[in-house]
């Protein structure tokens, strides 16, 4: 689905990472960990076409990301749900409309039943009419997750989804992501929260990748 082949990325003349290989197979569950500034967010951005690799090749659903025009990138993003650490909502729209935004921009209608079910799944039924700034950190993360999955994407990329929430909420979010993986979705979570990874490994078969010293390594046994 998403393949990175000998990928390098440089920013401002400095090489962030190089020689990076990664394949996200359908239905797989990956954690991406590493120290702050190692390039986890950049790697995720390469995976959904927000950034273009400065070396190597990124293939998104079989297409070379470098050759995609902006419309093609938009089409690909409808197949990839992204959960940002800072969520990124339209603050003037109610939560329900923010969650339905991917359907709106794709020109698909959503039934109110579908939306209600999704809001119920992430536990935000009562917050549907609220504006994003009125939500707590955990509620925002769950709303971002609901928005990421409303198009039923094949891949879900989450960047520090539990960064701003307490342990209980992080477990709840993790449970939702595991549930999605069991439904066949490919999941990649960038996090530095090792306890989250340990908790996940009890529930799902996950590969743990560590991005450090400009290289990506498999880091399973020590966790």
């Amino acid at each position: 689905m998403i393949e990175l082949d000998n990928v390098a990325y440089s920013y401002g003349g400095a090489e962030l990472f190089a020689g990076l290989d990664l394949t996200l197979a359908p239905g797989s569950f990956h954690f991406l960990t590493g120290p702050s500034g190692a390039g986890k967010t950049t790697l995720l951005k390469l995976c959904y076409g927000e950034l273009i690799a400065t070396g190597g090749q990124v293939r998104l659903f079989g297409q070379d990301a470098r050759g995609l025009d902006r419309d093609s990138v938009a089409q690909i993003r409808r197949r990839i749900g992204v959960v940002h650490q800072d969520c990124q909502f339209l603050d003037h729209l109610p939560v329900a409309e923010n969650i339905a935004l991917p359907l709106t921009v794709a020109g698909h209608g959503s039934t109110s039943d579908d939306l209600r079910d999704l809001l119920g799944w992430v536990g935000l039924s009562k917050q549907a009419a609220q504006l994003p700034p009125e939500l707590s950190g955990g509620e925002r993360q769950r709303a971002a997750l609901a928005r990421a999955v409303i198009m039923s994407p094949e891949v879900i990329l989450a960047d520090e989804p539990t960064g701003n929430v307490d342990w209980e909420m992080s477990q709840r979010l993790l449970g939702l992501l595991v549930e999605l993986n069991k439904m066949g979705k490919t999941v990649l979570i960038a996090t530095h929260d090792l306890s989250l990874i340990r908790a996940a490994k009890a529930q799902v078969s996950a590969r743990v990748l560590r991005l450090a010293d400009r290289r990506l390594q498999l880091a399973g046994a020590s966790l």
């Binding site: 902006r70 938009a74 993003r77 339209l90 935004l101 991917p102 921009v105 928005r147 198009m151």
Partner: peptide, 9 residues
Amino acid sequence: VMRLVGARD
């Protein structure tokens, strides 16, 4: 945000 959720230009 609109680009993130797949909006075309």
